[in-house]
Design a protein around this nucleic acid. Structure first.
Lengths: 223, 223
DNA sequence: ACCTGAACACCGTTCAAGT
DNA sequence: ACCTGAACACCGTTCAAGT
């Protein structure tokens, strides 16, 4: 058995495994070509057999993580288009928050992998079923993607992306503390709403955002 | 004159000048502590007199760029709250697109500088004047920030952030080409709306997004 | 086809020393 | 207070060579 002429020790998927593992353990700074190679017990330059360069490795990680969110949530039987989109967006956010070290890559590497294609297709379909024109459904799909990715990226950036992401309560407390130093005379609105701004990086804010967005999208529906 | 006991060759602002200059010329990859030092005619470690570390330098660049967008657009006399927010959001987007190499930093470094505070204050005030409750105005302000930053970040990521950002027409053509390879049988919506998806990274999409968002926000207004 | 060895041109950051 | 010299432990990537 294993009579093939070549002796690959592993394949691209194992390279991505190792990369994601490093990100999950040490955050963005932990990812390097050399570290991945070490993880696989191989010299740094051996990686170039599997991956064109660091950028390609990063795109592969993005593809892997994006694929972890279940797109079937978008077109299953369940209830309304709002519920389906809310379910998928929530799942995608959860997947991203589970890999805080990888989130930054989504804002840096172009999302051109197969998973991105599938997500787009299903999102457009969901919005079309909401009564949007095909063109509006397409624009709406992108709006939703931008929001989920942007929102999680800023949430994670607050802690430099190094896992584990501290619990919400801790991050909120830190923000409240920082905001308390704002001069109420110069920044009356900020002072009055500091408790709310402290929760900008939470699920509460995310839910509010998504509801607002879906309301805006519903306004695009043809009667 | 210049009777001070110390002999500073420059100040922090000149360090940020040099950093932003490098980003504008060579993109994100061009920014390094050593390159900034070289730009200022000084040894790498001399920079640590002005800046705690690379992360602090990056935050200073973010602060600088954010400050370039005129917040007065938010509270001037002009017309409706929609117009004022549209004007400021457009100005911020323009400033970011003028510094494509710096955009990635906004999604990585926490935005805790003085400019961020001012922007938040004015945005909340604008939304409060639209009839939102103080809490909703705060949430709405963050939603808008997330959208503008996320949208520009993804737009720039398409070309790896290296300046100059190619003209829209060129980027749209490249996307159309890439999308044309999608199988219409497996991805009917994508195929049908490929011309729209090709323009996801344009001002047209941005304007559509913002209008949709503002509609959603208007729905939060108290009657 | 896959991996190693060796090298190139880089990084951020530290420490002790000079003025 | 500000800068240099020297060093440390890293980077991504290339090329020629081995199997």
């Amino acid at each position: 058995m294993a009579t093939s002429a070549t002796r690959r020790n592993f394949d691209v998927e194992r390279v991505v495994d190792a990369a994601l593992d490093l990100l999950d353990r040490g955050g963005p700074a932990a990812l390097s070509v050399r570290a991945v190679a070490a993880e696989l017990g191989v010299r740094p330059n051996a990686l170039y057999t599997y991956v064109a360069d660091r950028a390609a490795l990063e795109r592969a990680v993005v593809e892997r993580v994006l694929g972890e969110a279940d797109v079937d949530l978008l077109d299953g039987s369940p209830a309304t288009w709002r519920r389906r989109i809310t379910a998928y967006a929530g799942a995608l956010r959860a997947v991203l928050l589970a890999h805080p070290g990888a989130v930054g890559l989504f804002m840096t590497a172009p999302m051109d992998g197969p998973s991105a294609l599938v997500v787009g297709e299903r999102l457009i379909a969901a919005l079309a079923s909401a009564g949007l024109s095909a063109e509006d459904a397409s624009r709406g799909a992108y709006l939703l993607i931008v929001h989920v990715l942007g929102s999680v990226a800023l949430e994670v950036a607050e802690t430099e992306g190094r896992p584990p992401l501290p619990p919400e309560a801790e991050r909120v407390a830190a923000r409240r503390e920082a905001l308390s130093s704002a001069d109420p005379a110069a920044f009356p609105w900020t002072a009055r709403t500091a408790d709310t701004a402290a929760t900008w990086v939470t699920t509460t804010q995310y839910d509010w955002d998504l509801a607002t967005l879906l309301h805006g999208l519903a306004g695009r529906a043809q009667t």
